[in-house]
Amino acid sequence: MNDAPTETMVRSELAFTRIDSAAWLQELRERGGGHGALVSFEGVVRPVTKQGEPLDRLILDHHPRMTVSSLERIARDGAARFDICALSVVHRAGAMAPGEIIVLVGVASDHRRAAFQCADYLMDRLKTEAVFWKREQGPFGERWIEPTQNDTEDRERWNEEKAGH
């Protein structure tokens, strides 16, 4: 556990253009210095909706200040909770086409377990708490997307576990 994550340990960003995951992960490798494990996760826009309809665009509306704060808070909490060297969280806002990266999480640590668990934790928090309002557009028109019960249950796991310590 890292009680007080340093500035260099944590990097979070709200992105308005395509996420270059290779560049982000290279930067994390350099910043993580001396780590033995690096875990990354990309969330990608699916080509179809949950109802099976083709999707043209996914749009994430954001708040001009609270969205960035939410990303920073989640990233800091992940760094404080797990025994890691460094992490990156970068999240898109605006309109995205199928195949584009919505979110990238990368965690560098001495050993793999903490990196896997920290990445899992970050994604569960981001899926429920990051300040975004999502809508999808396609031949069906436009509809808003709410968090699912599964997302909430995934998030609640971390209220009880003390993983990664």
Partner: peptide
């Protein structure tokens, strides 16, 4: 002052 619907998360 702002009003917001429940967030959908990322």
């Amino acid at each position: 002052v702002e009003f917001m619907s429940p967030v959908s998360g990322g």
